[in-house]
Design a protein around this nucleic acid. Structure first.
Lengths: 158, 158
DNA sequence: ACACCTTCGTTCGAATTTGAACAACAGGAG
DNA sequence: CTCCTGTTGTTCAAATTCGAACGAAGGTGT
């Protein structure tokens, strides 16, 4: 159980992939954040909350479930849902099957906000990522990162 | 110049790639953040500052240059460099060729901190990302995301 | 030398994020 | 039923992040 004295460092190609991932991720987040804020007054996190809710069966999801989909902390979600509640885009309901449970529910204004924000956001994602890559590259990205996510998900140990 | 009434939405594969990217990015950052903090008392940002400095010619870089490499805001870098300075891992020098300039410089203890933190970090990156993907997937990732980054870089308009 | 525009790094306030601690409840073993 | 363990969502303090505004200095054209 001792740490190796000389670990397997990343070779040139591996490093390129890793750096590319980190840099692209940061640059993309930056741009999307700005675009959403300027265009719709929403942060990326808030936008994603609305999107996940609008894709959910009844426009509502339990807090914990939503936090997992967003890959964020529970406390972070509580904060953002409160913000969205103040904006009138999301409401809180109590869960029928669990007294402890809280369901975040999309309001009509929330649904309208997604409809209004989505086109610009999608267009930018397309311009900055999707349309930059070939169909084959996209397929590899989806499969590879899907696998990475799948291996990471189970160990969601707090 | 009018916004399209019905934008080109993402099809199933495009959405899979985009979601995979976002989710993998969030999960990875979470894990790396925890590992670094627990293992070395450094945040991912702080670790990257140290790494970039240790890779630089004289163990030092100008603030703006460093901020660009890290893909972060100038004010964010100022804050983190101050933190690292308090830890004794980084020092500030004045730039010889520019009175306004400030050079962040790795101290001996800073160099030692990288040496100590790197193996664990690299091992986790390898375990969670590099070793999960095939050599071909890595190549595609590096090339694709490299291109994405390249297109994003120039428009680094604040 | 002068005015003008850009660049540099910091400061400031506001917003966000996180983990730990917490109280309330669910679910099962006995 | 009763105890015990795991979940659920929130609160709290602390840390981090960003953009805008700023003073100071560089660089250019005239």
């Amino acid at each position: 159980m001792s740490a190796p004295r000389e670990p397997r460092w990343l070779d040139e190609h591996e490093m390129a992939a890793w750096r590319g991932f980190v840099v692209a991720s940061n640059l993309l987040n930056r741009r999307l954040e700005r675009q959403l804020k300027e265009d719709s007054g929403l942060s990326h996190t808030q936008y994603e909350i609305l999107v996940h809710l609008s894709a959910a069966p009844a426009g509502s999801l339990r807090m914990t479930e939503l936090a997992e989909k967003l890959v964020t902390s529970k406390s972070g979600l509580t904060y953002q849902v409160t913000q969205l509640e103040r904006m009138g885009l999301v409401g809180r309901r109590s869960c029928p099957s669990d007294v402890r449970g809280v369901m975040a529910e999309l309001t009509d204004r929330g649904r309208e906000a997604v409809r209004q924000a989505a086109p610009g956001h999608v267009a930018l994602v397309r311009e900055l990522l999707i349309d930059v890559l070939t169909r084959e590259q996209l397929a590899v990205l989806a499969e590879g990162l899907g696998e990475v996510s799948a291996r990471l998900r189970p160990d969601d140990v707090p």
